[in-house]
Structures are given as structure tokens and as C-alpha cells.
């Protein structure tokens, strides 16, 4: 029951404990946060099951993990480990760009990314239980959380935003509070105070330049780059 809550990306048991103590309603276990995956390039795969199990042992809240798009074998392994939800994620390198996982074959629920209604409906028809946005500039502040909640989302995923900031613990606390207090600008003002430096994001203006190039040359690799973040658009 993740509704009305915040889900945080964590890379080890210690970060998972910080997320649970902050009030996260679930954590996403992965070896590297999306910002690092984009910067480092190469093929990004499912995380080491040992690391995922350590995180599952460290917290009592649900633990999610990512599989590559179309990689049903990775998803089978994640289900067998006992993760509480699988994110078929564009953050990892797609194993199959045309065919996503047939998620009806699984008992574990799936979350998938979508940029528009068509994409969301395709994922739902494949069996996705939850839809998240993707390819945005990053959720990093209580104000970002409030903006998303006021737009009508059911809950908020935070990728690199917490553990790539200067005071992860304080920021995690503030963002978890912001999901419930999203309508109260006065409280948000207090929550936003003295959080240190936010993560280093990529401005949307640089991303839309990339999208414009894709319109002229709509080849598949470039479309994926626009979603995944290619080396040319990511400032390291």
C-alpha cells in the first residue's frame, strides 16, 4: 500500500535504514542511483541479489528492485528472491526495445515508466500495477514533491535526489513529511529550510534540445537516449 507515500532509491542497507527512519513507505534497491548509471554509461543490469537481500533484511517496509525492459528472466529471479515490486525500468539498459515483459505471468506486481497516456495504457495492458513518470529533471526538494502531489499523483519516487544531496538524512525526512503536508505551503517552507545542497540535476532546456534532435532523426537509439540520458546531454 504505497499510496500517498514516498519511495526512495537506496544502494545499501544503511541507506535503506535512513529511508525507513525518514518515513519512506518503500525503498528501491539498486547498485547505482540513476544519476551514476547515466554518467558511467555501459550496460546497466539487474542489481546483485545479495545486495537486494541485505536491504530486505535491514528494513520492514516493502523493497522494490529494477529489471531491464523485456528481461523476463531477471524479473523471474527478482520474484524468486521475494522483492515486493519489480520496476521494469528504462534506467537500466533495455534487453528488448520492442517487447516489454509479459507481466501477467507474475504474482509480484510491476511498476513501469510512461511519458504519455498511450504508453501508460500499453504497460497496463501488459500487466503493470502502477505507472510512474520518467525522463523528468529529477525530484529533489519538498517543493518538487508538493508540485507532483498537487498535479494529482498517488505517490512520489525519489531517485538520486536524496543520497546525491549534501544532507541525505535531513532531506529524506523533509521529503517524507512533504508528501502528506503537500497542500500546506507554510509547513513546506519550514521543511525546505536549511537542507544543504540538492542533487546536481540536468536542466530540462538541455533535455529538450536533445528531444528536438530526435524529432529530426527519429532513430531508436536516439529515442532511448532521450529517455535514458545519453552522454551528450548529461553533465558530469
Amino acid at each position: 500500500m504505497a499510496k500517498g507515500g514516498i519511495i526512495m532509491d537506496v544502494t545499501n542497507a544503511e541507506e535503506a535504514r535512513i529511508a525507513e527512519e525518514a518515513g519512506a513507505c518503500a525503498v528501491m534497491a539498486l547498485e547505482r542511483v540513476p544519476a551514476d548509471i547515466r554518467r558511467q554509461g555501459g550496460v546497466a543490469r539487474m542489481s546483485d541479489p545479495k545486495m537486494i537481500k541485505e536491504i530486505m533484511g535491514a528494513v520492514t517496509i516493502p523493497v522494490m528492485a529494477k529489471s531491464r525492459i523485456g528481461h523476463f528472466a531477471e524479473a523471474q529471479i527478482l520474484e524468486a528472491i521475494g522483492v515486493d515490486m519489480i520496476d521494469e525500468s528504462e534506467v537500466l539498459t533495455p534487453a528488448d526495445e520492442d517487447n516489454h515483459i509479459d507481466k501477467h505471468n507474475f504474482k509480484v506486481p510491476f511498476v513501469c515508466g510512461a511519458r504519455d497516456l498511450g504508453e501508460a495504457l500499453r504497460r497496463i495492458s501488459e500487466g503493470a500495477a502502477m505507472i510512474r513518470t520518467k525522463g523528468e529533471a529529477g525530484t529533489a526538494t519538498p517543493a518538487d514533491v508538493s508540485l507532483l502531489m498537487q498535479l494529482g499523483v498517488d505517490g512520489v519516487f525519489v531517485g538520486s535526489g536524496i543520497f546525491k544531496s549534501s544532507c541525505p538524512k535531513k532531506r529524506a525526512h523533509a521529503m517524507a513529511q512533504a508528501v502528506t503536508h503537500y497542500k500546506d505551503a507554510k509547513v513546506l517552507g519550514e521543511l525546505s529550510s536549511d537542507l544543504g545542497e540538492a542533487m546536481f540535476g540536468t536542466p530540462m532546456s538541455q533535455r529538450s534540445k536533445m528531444a528536438a534532435i530526435n524529432k529530426e532523426h527519429p532513430d531508436k537509439q536516439q529515442i532511448w537516449n532521450a529517455t535514458l540520458g545519453s552522454k551528450t546531454q548529461t553533465v558530469s
Binding site: 500500500m1 504505497a2 499510496k3 500517498g4 507515500g5 525507513e20 527512519e21 525518514a22 518515513g23 519512506a24 513507505c25 518503500a26 520492514t60 517496509i61 516493502p62 525526512h173 517524507a176 513529511q177 502528506t180
Partner: peptide, 15 residues
């Protein structure tokens, strides 16, 4: 309502 008991209890304490 149902949700995560840790999330709800931490929120109740902090607020």
C-alpha cells in the same frame, strides 16, 4: 487507514 505502519507512526510522532 492501511498503509505502512512505520510511515504513519513516524509521521504521528514528528507532528
Amino acid at each position: 487507514p492501511g498503509g505502512e505502519s512505520t510511515t504513519i507512526s513516524l509521521f504521528l510522532r514528528r507532528n
